[in-house]
């Protein structure tokens, strides 16, 4: 049984996703929808980290329920930089790169949930399966947003 490994890996990737989303948010403070939606979506990952730490105890794991995040100073430096760069067109390309990166990260996390759900089913771990059922859709929604926003942003960045 390697369920503990699957939980640990997912805990790691959701934890990482919080950092990805929050740093992306800070980098694009001047892009208001990106700034707020990534922060709202980071809350889902934070909750997933809590849930995974909680259920991890049943599988002998000692995981941190609190997502590790960048110190506030780094965040505010990024936000300030974004505001100062707001009048230039280069952040557009950076946004596309960040969206592409986010899509890949969320797709990876989503697959990790898939693995966990399948394994939980195989191992008849009802509670774990229920957790995956609850969290996996949010992981998919993060990926869909990255994809959708890329579609919106690309034409103006690339074709102008």
């Amino acid at each position: 049984m390697k369920l503990d490994l699957a939980i640990e890996e997912l805990h790691r990737s959701e934890n990482h996703l919080v950092t990805v989303l929050m740093s992306m948010s800070d980098r694009h403070k001047a892009d208001h929808e990106v700034f707020y939606v990534t922060r709202d979506m980071a809350k889902w990952s934070r909750e997933h980290v809590v849930e995974l730490a909680r259920i991890g105890r049943d599988f002998g794991l000692d995981l941190d329920p609190e997502a590790s995040e960048d110190p506030g100073l780094l965040a505010s430096v990024r936000q300030r930089a974004s505001e100062l760069m707001g009048r230039r067109s280069t952040p557009g390309l950076l946004l596309l790169a960040d969206l592409r990166h986010l899509y890949r990260e969320t797709a990876g996390t989503s697959l990790d949930w898939e693995i966990l759900a399948q394994s939980a089913q195989g191992a008849k771990e009802a509670e774990l399966l229920e957790l995956a059922r609850r969290c996996h859709p949010e992981s998919l929604r993060q990926a869909r947003w990255a994809n959708a926003h890329l579609k919106v942003a690309a034409p103006q960045v690339v074709a102008s």
């Binding site: 929808e33 230039r88 557009g92 579609k151 919106v152 103006q156 960045v157 102008s160």
Partner: peptide, 17 residues
């Protein structure tokens, strides 16, 4: 893609496109 709403238009005006 969906039409560019005014708040996003302003963002494009801000970055100069």
């Amino acid at each position: 893609s969906p039409p560019t709403h005014i708040m996003q238009q302003l963002r494009y005006i801000e970055e100069g496109s």
